[in-house]
């Protein structure tokens, strides 16, 4: 699936993927989790990887099986500042009233595994979410 790397493009893709997951009969908690993780991962691409240009695209693969859901996102934007397994990052402290910085911690807390590599000018993020 090709997703326009815009906020609207991300929203449209999420609505479609959640509708597809729902049809597979998976429970609401699971597709809710997939929706949060995918939203944060795709919004990161829109806001950071493609922050300096428009017309970018995310190539998205969603594979659902008995053990859970695999997400793979590819884009040609700027690289992340880490490779391999997602580093541990604490959510910002609530008392500081943070208005951002929630995205990667949410991905980390909701996924079984999150792995990133950069190859041939392309970002590839693979995330697995177990069925709860």
């Amino acid at each position: 699936m090709r997703v326009a790397a815009t906020r609207q493009g991300v929203r449209r893709a999420l609505v479609r993927i959640v509708a597809e997951l729902r049809r597979t009969g998976v429970n609401e908690a699971h597709y809710g989790t997939v929706e949060i993780v995918l939203a944060e991962a795709m919004n990161n691409v829109v806001e950071h990887a493609y922050s300096d240009r428009t017309g970018g695209e995310i190539r998205l693969l969603v594979a659902h099986g008995p053990e859970g859901t695999l997400l793979q996102l590819r884009d040609r934007g700027a690289p992340l500042d880490w490779v391999g397994e997602q580093p541990y990052g604490r959510p910002p402290h609530p008392e500081t009233l943070p208005e951002g910085g929630f995205g990667w911690p949410l991905i980390r807390l909701l996924s079984e595994n999150c792995h990133y590599q950069r190859r041939n000018g392309e970002n590839c993020l693979s995330i697995t979410i177990s069925l709860s």
Binding site: A29, G32, T33, E35, I36, P91, F102, P105, L106
Partner: peptide
């Protein structure tokens, strides 16, 4: 439920 999940995890 899904809004509660985000509030709780963060």
């Amino acid at each position: 439920p899904n809004v509660g999940k985000v509030l709780q995890l963060t």
